[in-house]
Design a protein around this nucleic acid. Structure first.
Lengths: 224, 224
DNA sequence: GGAACGGCATCTGTATGCAGGTTGTGAGCG
DNA sequence: CGCTCACAACCTGCATACAGATGCCGTTCC
């Protein structure tokens, strides 16, 4: 009987890593809101496992900075303070600048070509006003920059920072005219990278993200 | 009986967080070498706790990147590959550059004064050839830069990166003439910050760390 | 003599039970 | 009517027990 249940659990494939990703997704996509408590028992029953793996998942999320943990207290989805949020946006701009700069120096011919093609293709989405699709393209675009820097540790830092910022920049493309502006800024970055103009690429990427951060901060303040 | 044992354990005060710090220290100071296996049972008996908290500690160390974890395998002190190590040193230089640049813009009068005083005081250590003491001062010096940037997220990233790099830069001041050179480079950084010359401070800090990284990489390659 | 297979020892992954801390609620007192 | 204190329910932290996986070693067969 016990075995049967275990098999079922394994069938559903709920390992700790999957739980981490699932919960992280919920936080990042806003399914769980900042400040919300993450009760171990509730999560355990939700994922059909015992509390032990849930605890490990929560600890990992804590290390990732997505949830806060205090002794004898439930894990809580981190509600980032205004100043810390600002510091993350600023750090993000710096990191994007680094990635764009290094990409301009190091991207392979193939990477440059793919970046440009993908970018050109996104113009269609701008004209169509396809916010969802453009958001997906945007994620892909930036990931290309992160990879193009050919620096694994920077990649890790920027990826992690982006994950932690995700909850606060969800609706960024809803702002009127933001799509076209984003495309324009992407264009500057791409052009600079193709030209291998590292300084210009870094500057363009920094500004691009810094601007997004301002808009998003305004939105977050107004939206909540 | 059980209670008594528990009390003893609590007396020794071995909580998960303390274990994380203890193990992290062992890794960072080289008491445990990269590639070494971290057996849960051994650690549990060493810290006089059960395997459960040990597992949580290991998971946290894994999230910090200090140990690697694979399914059904012991946790292993991460043996950073050459290219990843290089990427961390490069990232460290970038981060130090950011911190110095922001410090030049944002440090309070008190922070600038303390930085300069501490720096001037370290000349004595250089003359005395006090490598240990200078290393301590050096850590303090850089921490001042990290704090002076007034950006909490950057502070976190740079601190974490430094922790992960620590095992690989232990003997950096043993290299002949390195002390004086370090002081000289610190001097450029301090001077630029006092002058509020952000670009110069950033450049100086970047070069300072990049140089250290080269020397340390050489040492690591030769030493092992 | 070598290779492959099977059994055993060992370690990880998870469930469960228990002790202690935290919080919320209700009764009693001011 | 409000405040305080105590108690109870609940939740976290840890220990222990058990199931599954991995790797090693010895034996056997080719």
């Amino acid at each position: 009987m016990k075995q049967v249940r275990r098999r079922e659990v394994i069938r559903t494939g709920t390992t700790v890593e999957q739980m981490v990703r699932a919960i992280a997704d919920m936080i990042v996509t806003g399914a769980i809101l900042p400040g919300e408590k993450l009760d171990e028992i509730t999560l355990a029953s939700r994922f059909e496992v015992s509390r032990t793996p849930v605890r490990e998942a929560l600890r990992e999320l804590g290390a990732m900075g997505l949830v806060g943990r205090e002794p004898n207290r439930s894990a809580v989805v981190t509600n980032v303070t205004g100043t810390y949020l600002h510091s993350m946006f600023e750090a993000m701009a710096e990191l994007e600048g680094i990635c764009a700069r290094l990409s301009a120096e190091r991207m392979t011919v193939d990477e440059r070509r793919a970046l440009e093609l993908d970018h050109r293709g996104s113009m269609r989405l701008v004209h169509a006003g396809a916010e969802e699709d453009y958001a997906a393209h945007n994620t892909e675009f930036h990931t290309r920059l992160y990879r193009g820097a050919h620096n694994d540790h920077v990649f890790e830092m920027v990826t992690q920072t982006r994950a932690r910022l995700a909850p606060f920049r969800r609706a960024q493309f809803r702002l009127p005219g933001r799509l076209a502006k984003s495309y324009e800024e992407h264009d500057q970055i791409v052009t600079s990278i193709i030209r291998a103009d590292a300084a210009a690429a870094g500057q363009a990427a920094y500004s691009h993200v810094a601007i997004v951060s301002d808009a998003s901060a305004v939105f977050a303040a107004a939206g909540e």
